[in-house]
Amino acid sequence: MLFVAPLVVLLLIFVYAPIGRLVYYAFTTYDGLKPPQWVGLDNFAFLASWPDFRRAIGNTVVLTLGVIVWVGLPFLLAVIIHGRRSANLVRAILFLPALLPALIVGRAFRLVLAEQGPINEALRGLGLDLLAQPWLASETWVLPTIITVIAWATMGTGVLLYSAGLASLSSDYVEAALVDGARWRQLVWHIYRPALGPVTRFWLLLLTIGTVTSFFPWILGLTQGGPGTASVTLDYQVYRSGVQTSRLGLASAIALVGVLVVAVLLVVQLVMRRVRGSDEW
């Protein structure tokens, strides 16, 4: 018990007591300077009728689907790299972006993905003008682009984790499957995927902290929610309403709805696992 006590005490003081205040603010109008004034459910009623808010929920859900890429890509890369001579060098290079704060990654990609930036100019140089896009300024492309940038930034860490998992797999296991005549695809899906399940769970946990509940620094660095509201996420809207314009009651209400969204996503995940009747990933 003594082991857990310090964590519990500090969490209660520095995280949960403020959350208590936040819950109260959600039912008030509050600008941070004058005392909060109770308004009942007004903030929630406003959110219910606010199209931008629905957009933010939709954007958050779409970006969260990026998890498939953020997990799948490093998994496949790790399998491909596994056991090759240059594996260490490749892993080290892929890990470099993990050293950059999300805000800075965003700034970097604003340069790279600009309309007249190097990517588009290269495409035009190759005669592929049709493929050149205003990546971060197009309603169609902005969310896939953000998912890709996050994949770029998180890929290296994922590869390292999966490589570690692969290294610890018994090679007999794999060889037995090969003797049975398994093709590469089957090997990946039926052997590596279930065997690396614990790594996937841990990686999902890290991703959740770095992205799913905190898209804010990515959005701030990359698009500031644009074009229009095409990339505004729930937590970015919290920033806009709460920090930028000091409507803390409204921002708190948005945050509470956000918790609900996360809860729903978790329940969906649980149900999916029940339905498939296994703990596999």
């Binding site: 959740t208 509940t213 919290v238 945050a255 956000g258 918790v259």
Partner: peptide, 24 residues
Amino acid sequence: LLLVLAVGGLTIPIAALVIPEFDQ
């Protein structure tokens, strides 16, 4: 319960918690 307590805080964006934290 302890696990939920540890993870639960991660579901609230920091942007929403800065001012409550400051107020406290």
